[in-house]
């Protein structure tokens, strides 16, 4: 066990999987010589060589297409898209090609690959380095979507994603890359299964279902509400597709009140899907309306710190939302 930040945990996961399986390779912009703009692949090229850790041209569509070609040849590529905002030039390759190849070939072909991308805001990245893109990919059957928020989850889930027979979009909250350290296991002991949520705080009054950076903020809000006598149960989804409906249902049946807390634009955000499913499945357990506490419906997170803060839900706003729900 060693203390690791989230970005170090990502790097460890890649190194361990490359060590374990010679088919695993890494490709993307600046992942080689530089080791990635966030240093997630630092040292890997020196260790594994310029083919297994390949700097690609600045062209996201071909990064994904080449990764798919390698997967079709039996390799296990991990492609990095430098920022999730830049996955859109590869959208056709991801959605029409990678995600649908198994279905459109009636099971004859598969495409085991991982597309990693830093996601979310709060780092002064402005409109084009702060976006939350998960809803676009969660909409697509054939993809799995993972969004961890702790070093141990990042490592364990990335290792599982690399071993998964299907394509995985692996989104890393960049604001948490170096936000803290925790003990992270090594080797197979670090593995975490895809599709399992974590109940990260128990509480009997309100359920807050969250993921990514807002897990941290939601826990701050929950600690604050504790002082007011409101007990908040916090669930971190960790994997968004497939998401752990049962764990969420269990919590909501206990509390009767639920808010889905997410950073992305409110309308059509992944939290809207969670809210809809829960409303359908546990209506009889609810004592209050299923609520979304989400980013605003503006195009993206602005560069100005004042506007950035106005965009990003903070502990005050999340606590206010949860308090309203508790008192409903």
């Amino acid at each position: 066990m060693a203390e690791r930040t989230l970005v170090q945990a990502v790097r460890d996961a890649l190194a361990e999987e490359m060590e374990r399986d010679p088919r695993v390779c890494v490709l993307g912009e600046d992942v080689g010589l530089k080791g990635g703009v966030f240093k997630a692949t630092e040292g890997l090229q020196a260790r594994f060589g310029p083919e297994r850790v390949m700097d690609t041209p600045l062209a996201e569509s071909s990064i994904v297409a080449v990764a798919q070609g390698l997967a079709l040849e039996g390799y296990r590529p991990v492609a990095e898209i430098q920022f999730a905002d830049y996955s859109f030039p590869a959208f056709n390759q991801i959605v029409n090609e990678v995600a649908r190849i198994r279905y459109r070939s009636n099971g004859d072909f598969g495409c085991p690959l991982v597309i990693r991308a830093p996601t979310g805001g709060g780092v002064r990245g402005g409109l084009y380095h702060s976006q939350s893109v998960e809803a676009f990919y969660c909409h697509v059957p054939g993809l799995k979507v993972v969004l961890p928020s702790t070093p141990a989850d990042a490592k364990g889930l990335l290792k599982s994603a690399v071993r998964d027979p299907d394509p995985v979009i692996f989104l890393e909250p960049k604001k948490l890359y170096r936000a803290g350290r925790e003990e992270v296991a090594e080797g197979d002991g670090a593995l975490r299964r895809l599709g399992e949520a974590a109940l990260v705080r128990a509480g009997r009054d309100v359920t807050a279902i969250t993921y990514g950076y807002l897990r941290v903020v939601t826990l701050q809000a929950a600690a604050r509400l504790q002082e007011e006598g409101i007990e908040v149960e916090v669930v971190d989804l960790r994997t968004l597709r497939p998401w752990d409906v049962e764990t969420c249902l269990g919590s909501v049946r206990r509390t009767g009140r639920v808010a889905v807390v997410y950073e992305a634009n409110r309308t059509g955000g992944f939290g809207a899907e969670v809210a809809a499913e829960l409303a359908e499945r546990c209506f009889e357990s609810l004592d209050a309306p299923v609520t979304r506490l989400a980013g605003p419906d503006v195009p993206a997170m602005p560069f100005s710190p004042a506007l950035e803060q106005a965009f990003l839900p903070d502990a005050d706003r999340i606590a206010a939302g949860l308090r309203r729900l508790a008192r409903f």
């Binding site: 297409a65 080449v66 990764a67 079709l72 040849e73 390799y75 390759q93 090609e97 072909f109």
Partner: peptide
């Protein structure tokens, strides 16, 4: 024969990736 799709051109960079894998082999 790698299964096609009906959008135009995505097989072109995919072939480059397949070629890279074949080169490695």
């Amino acid at each position: 024969v790698i299964i096609g799709s009906s959008t135009v051109g995505p097989q072109i960079p995919k072939a480059a990736g397949i070629g890279l894998g074949l080169k490695w082999k």
